[in-house]
Write a protein that binds this DNA or RNA. Structure first.
Length: 261
DNA sequence: ATGCCTTTCCCAGAAAGA
């Protein structure tokens, strides 16, 4: 069984590339982030001929997550219990969606960026991650293979950014953000670290600007956090950096995980 | 070479991304 996660930075802008990638990679389940389409606007008809059912949770201009599955789609839950709002508690963004796909349960997440450590958005990010740890505790401890996959907007260690000094005053590397990831691990989840075809670090994101991809200026922020049943079934995991090349890519590359269940 | 930012709102430029 093949499961992937990909921040596509607009599913409409990426649709031709997404369809090509699905045909070539043939994942059974795909968690998408930053779909940037409103409720009902996901182009499900474009992936249906490939055998995929779609569960979507979108809001329009920003955010948006989805799960594609060709092995069944059940128990879909948009959002999560205890999710904080931004900028106020009445505004809940479309950042997570869970679904059961055949033998596995997955949760697609698009964690808030945080902007800067001084910004209210950073406090929101930490509250969102704390709510995530609570929301996944049951699935993390369950016997059913389960993983949280997506854009966590946190680099777990200094090796996961191309130059730690550049990020010294930035989000994505602060002790509080990394402690939030430790909270997820404490709930029973394991970081499934992928391999990559080029370079020593399995980065998953490269800024569009300044030729970052070509200079190796990347970050590993798209993560797969798996419970014991999922983690022990992993037979391989890789970053598909080919998907970051060429004309009109997302700024994120997919992470692909193979399971032997 | 893999190549120097992109997407959305909507028609201009701001906001957001990380």
């Amino acid at each position: 069984m093949r499961i992937a996660t990909w921040n596509v930075n607009s599913v409409l802008a990426r649709l031709p590339r997404l369809v090509d990638w699905l045909e070539q990679t043939a994942p059974d389940v795909v968690c998408l982030q930053e779909t940037k389409v409103g409720p009902g606007a996901f182009p499900a008809e474009a992936v249906r001929p490939l055998g995929y059912q779609v569960a979507e949770h979108g809001e329009g201009r920003w955010n948006g997550v989805a799960v594609l599955s060709r092995v069944g789609l059940a128990d879909v839950a948009a959002g999560m219990a205890g999710a904080p709002g931004f900028p106020d508690e009445s505004t809940i963004e479309a950042r997570t969606l869970a679904a059961t796909c055949g033998p596995v349960r997955v949760r697609s997440v698009y964690v808030p960026n945080g902007r800067t450590p001084q910004d209210p958005h950073y406090a929101y990010k930490l509250r969102w991650l704390a709510a995530l740890a609570d929301a996944v505790a049951g699935d993390a401890a369950a016997a059913v293979p389960f993983a949280v996959l997506g854009d966590f907007n946190v680099a777990p260690a200094d090796d996961d950014v191309w130059d730690p000094a550049v990020f010294a005053e930035s989000t994505h590397v602060t002790p509080a953000e990394r402690a939030a990831l430790a909270g997820l691990r404490a709930a029973g989840l394991t970081d499934v670290v992928p391999t990559i075809a080029k370079g020593p670090h399995p980065y998953t994101y490269w800024d569009y600007r300044a030729g970052a991809f070509h200079k190796g200026m990347g970050m590993r922020i798209d993560l797969v956090y798996a419970n014991q049943a999922f983690a022990t079934a992993v037979s391989g995991a890789y970053v598909d950096r080919e998907a970051r090349k060429g004309k009109g890519p997302s700024d994120h590359a997919p992470v692909v995980v193979d399971l032997d269940l």
